[in-house]
Design a protein around this nucleic acid. Structure first.
Lengths: 231, 231
DNA sequence: AAATGATTTAATCGTCCGTTTGACTTTTGG
DNA sequence: CCAAAAGTCAAACGGACGATTAAATCATTT
């Protein structure tokens, strides 16, 4: 009958939140367990008690915000492929599925927008350089999935060419996230649309053009107009 | 008659070389003074004696490989602007001036290609996040200079749009450098051309297409054919 | 109320860090 | 040749780090 009571005290969550905030602000390696426990108003030993080690906490923090994003990416891509059964999925929609979860998942985090984007960017930037294996595996699967989708949408682009172009796209995406604050001030002033929405639209157009480079324009869709993207 | 003897013992250079190598391999923050002096076969105190502090050494290491690259970037851009006096500089050539110095400056370093690219990538990725002020200033000036050039080459692109597109390009460039090793294996097997040359050609095409997005094709150059880029 | 398990706490461990010291050795210039 | 400068060296400094211990406190169940 105790299933409604929290089996864990609030301190575990407080530690996760404090760590998340500090990692976003200062980077993963620049934050000590003492920084974290101090912000969370917990004892130094709390981290090792609840998470086994600093690395255990780091992994859980990463999983908490990365997993929903990666799951939504896959879900969106699968929806796209199901919708357009047979027909090719428009390139812009694939890129959208890759980056849109950044804005849709943000409200579920308690971090400010700015910090959430930084956190995501920091994580992606560290790929292949000491990320927890679970995160690496998630990202590997996501990129493999999207690479296949891109290949289908761009049959005219050679495989090795496409691999590099996707690489460039990912780099642009990371830079968009990590340095978002620098340029976001230019974007503001527009309508009530969140600034990141505008940035993502810009990114989708840029990435699609880069990915399509050298591919001659296809004949205007045989049946009906193309889906419009007026971000 | 002693002009051929080094006024400084070789240890200063050995420290710079060792630090450069370790920074490239493990990242700037993951290398201790003791790691460096051990590889350089010097005493722990040598770093503080020759460079004042670990940060002093880090700054000098960065300056040593960043300054030539940034100077060549500017020089190439100025040559372009001088050559095509009046006429607009082709977009591809501007991007080329931005990234080509990576390959031209590499042989002057004693590092292996792979490490040199990693080092550059790591540095760019840290921009605005604790780089030595001199390096930050160099990069700021370079990007300001190139932003002006891009604006001239793409008068049809709004200023804020262009700023973001350049941002995406820089992100792709950084990712190309830092993760070069992962995809380079796909590129090899070609002719005797260095793999990075091929990668840079791919990057230039990608970036140019992204930057040009939405700009209707200009009428075929009124006088003579365009300069050919057959990388 | 007693017992049990989960959590919190202060104190401390050993290690690594960047830096400093002072003695020692080498190089340099008059 | 010799004094001054430059360089090297072993040793140690204080501080921060992640982790651990054992006792104290809390919550829940019996």
């Amino acid at each position: 009958m105790r299933e409604m009571t929290f089996p864990e005290s609030g301190s575990k969550r407080k530690l996760l939140d404090a760590a998340e905030q500090l990692f976003a602000e200062k980077g993963f390696e620049a934050v000590s367990v003492r920084d974290i426990t101090q912000l969370a108003k917990a004892n130094v030993a709390a981290v090792n008690y609840h998470f086994g080690s600093r690395d255990g906490l780091l992994t859980l923090v990463m999983m908490r915000y990365m997993t929903p994003v990666n799951e939504e990416r896959i879900a969106r891509l699968e929806t796209l492929e199901r919708k357009s059964s047979g027909k090719t999925v428009p390139l812009e929609e694939i890129i959208d599925a890759l980056v849109r979860p950044f804005v849709t998942q943000i409200r579920k985090s308690e971090l400010s927008e700015r910090l959430f984007y930084k956190l995501m960017g920091r994580t992606f930037a560290q790929q292949g350089d000491g990320l927890p294996p679970q995160i690496e595996e998630q990202l590997r699967q996501v990129m493999q999935r999207f690479t296949r989708a891109f290949a289908k949408a761009l049959p005219a682009v050679a495989a090795d060419d496409l691999a590099w172009r996707i690489h460039f796209v990912v780099g642009g995406m990371i830079h968009m996230l990590t340095h978002q604050e620098i340029l976001q001030r230019l974007t503001q002033g527009a309508s009530g649309v969140p600034p990141m929405e505008v940035t993502i639209s810009r990114f989708i157009r840029f990435a699609a053009a880069g990915l399509r480079e050298g591919v001659e324009a296809e004949e205007p869709a045989a049946e009906g107009p193309q889906v419009l993207f007026d971000f």
